[in-house]
């Protein structure tokens, strides 16, 4: 077996670590996957191993390479990279991420780090020499998670809204507000118009994506940087070996581990 730390698609996080079986001696016959074709050829055996071990199958969502290792399946660095890249993004987003990373590297001469608030601050105010803005009290605009057609159907089900008669004394009841969804970075509305913000008296040492949003129209590179940051945050999370072990041992909570009941692969060809 080989150490594959450097083959990880995200070196900073070292998501793969050692791909030795995390449970010590693997209970499975060793199976080595060194080419795409062998991955396809051994699908049924791979599926069988995960289907027979539901807990192990769920660990595919934590780190598929380490879950493969626990199933006695050794991947070559090339296959590891393929697996991780495939699961991290859809093809379209993977392509867009690659375009943005390349473009920004070319324009600014270094790897863009949109999710590093200190780096973003330096980029905005030292490199681009933008004026700091006072964003306090402002929230980014978000697009709704549901599409317009669905919202229209849902709205149609609600009772007709009637404004209260003018001059009527305020109702002595409770104002109830319902948030049908939670604002998330993945739904930043990049096309929304920004409010006119005052200049800030001080330069913030850190700029998160929520604050970077308000600079999106200040410079073309900022818009690209924001979009890259969003894509990075939307990547499927690949946990480090340490994190994988803690989640597997139940020492660290994880949403997928608790929410996903089972992952089953069809051992028969689907129609």
């Amino acid at each position: 077996m080989k150490k594959n730390r450097d083959d990880s698609p995200d070196k900073a996080k070292s998501p793969v670590g050692s791909d030795r079986p995390e449970s010590g001696e693997s209970a499975f016959e060793p199976l080595e996957i060194d080419r795409h074709i062998s991955l396809a050829a051994n699908q049924r055996e791979i599926f069988r191993r995960f289907n027979q071990n539901p807990d192990l199958a769920k660990m595919l969502l934590i780190n598929p390479v380490l879950a493969f290792a626990d199933a006695g399946i050794t991947l070559t660095p090339e296959i590891k990279r393929h697996v991780l890249e495939t699961i991290q993004h859809s093809p379209r987003m993977r392509l867009r991420r690659s375009e943005l990373e390349g473009k920004l590297r070319e324009q600014i001469g270094e790897t863009a780090q949109p999710n590093n608030p200190a780096w973003v601050s330096s980029f905005l105010f030292n490199k681009l020499r933008l004026t700091p803005l006072d964003t306090s009290g402002y929230e980014p605009q978000y697009v709704e998670p549901l599409n317009a057609e669905i919202i229209k159907r849902l709205q149609a089900r609600l009772p007709k809204r009637r404004p209260r008669p003018a001059g009527k004394r305020k109702l002595m009841g409770t104002l109830i507000s319902v948030a049908p969804w939670k604002p998330t970075i993945r739904r930043f509305d990049l096309e929304a118009a920004l409010p006119k913000l005052k200049a800030s008296r001080s330069t913030p040492p850190e700029v998160t994506l929520q604050h970077l949003y308000f600079y999106k129209d200040s410079h073309p590179l900022v818009r690209d940087l924001l979009e890259l940051g969003i894509i990075q945050r939307r990547a499927f999370p690949i946990h480090t070996g340490d994190s994988y072990r803690q989640i597997k041992d139940g020492n660290k909570p994880n949403a997928f581990r608790s929410w996903i009941k089972s992952i089953r692969f069809s051992e028969k060809p689907k129609r």
Partner: peptide, 25 residues
């Protein structure tokens, strides 16, 4: 004027796990 704000929250999700937002959405 008293008010009440209602917001659904998925249990066991770390609020910072933005990767899971697609599921939460």
């Amino acid at each position: 004027q008293c008010g009440l704000h209602l917001q659904a929250r998925a249990g066991d999700f770390d609020i910072d796990e933005s990767c899971c937002d697609v599921f939460l959405d």
